[in-house]
């Protein structure tokens, strides 16, 4: 579509205004974290009148016992990366097996997988909590990582992709004497990379942002994820100081923002090549 220069300028101005609205809460978080208690509890100014780093200093000294933010970040990183890797591996193998291999009852499995996608998570989440409680694994990494591998989205995405993908290369490799794992690694994997990139980003965001599940299965401060740990601070009587609240929020948010700025182009590219439409 052709636009005049004036039209372009107007569009850019509109976009800039909207962008300002989007950025504002983050700016407010940033500046409030440098305010002292009295000022942060009530002020009409965005910028601090008196800049102070006390909120951050206290977070890393006196509050480390009940608000170990760095530990929460490490937990979250471990869970998000570990869970994503687990999902990608199991889902790829499963989808490959259904789409290309000689799996018994594959139609039944595919039917169950698609049917399960229509059942909302709320039906599963509480009974699953009690399953974990009964085998004594609450407050460990097991419930924080393993259940995500029951996700069927990836199986569905990769299966849909493979179904429409020609088999010529695989057959050639087979005649050359490659086994199934080699074919998966050297032939299939390179071609489904975009799907896997998308699946990884979606899964990563899903695990990183999950709130109810980690809230249920963790009890102790050191097993919390960032999302759940911060929730305890928002609700708790201990953090009555919004400046300190925003300092902890800032620390918890920055790593995710950085990862996101670098990874979002994969998301943008990847969604195109999947069945998400």
């Amino acid at each position: 579509m052709k636009q005049s220069k004036a039209q372009k300028v107007i569009l850019i101005i509109i976009a800039t205004l909207i962008a300002a609205v989007f950025i504002f809460p983050l700016l407010w978080m940033f500046f409030t974290s440098f305010k002292g208690m009295a000022e942060s509890i009530s002020s009409a100014r965005l910028l601090p009148r008196n800049w102070t780093a006390n909120n951050f200093i206290e977070l890393f000294t006196v509050d480390t016992a009940n608000a170990p933010i760095i530990r929460w970040l490490l937990n979250t990183a471990f869970i998000s990366f570990g869970g994503t890797a687990l999902v990608v591996i199991t889902n790829t193998l499963a989808a490959y097996s259904i789409a290309r291999l000689n799996l018994p009852a594959k139609r039944l499995f595919m039917f169950i997988i698609v049917a399960s996608m229509t059942i909302p998570g709320i039906v599963i989440v509480f009974p699953r909590y009690f399953n974990f409680r009964d085998i004594g694994l609450l407050d460990t990494f097991a419930p924080l990582i393993l259940p995500y591998a029951a996700s069927t989205l990836g199986v569905f995405l990769i299966y849909s992709f493979l179904r429409n993908f020609p088999r010529d290369l695989e057959e050639a490799a087979y005649i050359d004497g490659a086994n199934q794992l080699q074919i998966l690694r050297h032939v299939i994997f390179p071609s489904i990379k975009p799907v896997i990139a998308t699946l990884s980003v979606i899964t990563f965001i899903l695990i990183y942002n999950d709130f109810l599940w980690p809230l249920l299965v963790t009890n102790s401060a050191e097993m919390r994820t960032v999302t759940v740990g911060l929730a305890n601070l928002v609700q708790g009587a201990n953090f009555v100081n919004p400046g300190k609240m925003m300092a902890s929020t800032l620390i918890a948010t920055v790593p995710a923002l950085v990862i996101f700025i670098f990874a979002n182009r994969y998301f943008v590219k990847g969604v195109n090549s999947t069945g998400l439409k």
Binding site: F22, V234, M246, T249, A256, I261
Partner: peptide, 13 residues
């Protein structure tokens, strides 16, 4: 970008 902020941080803000 705000999608990268967790629900608790969003709520706190």
């Amino acid at each position: 970008i705000s999608y990268a902020v967790s629900v608790t941080a969003v709520s706190a803000i």
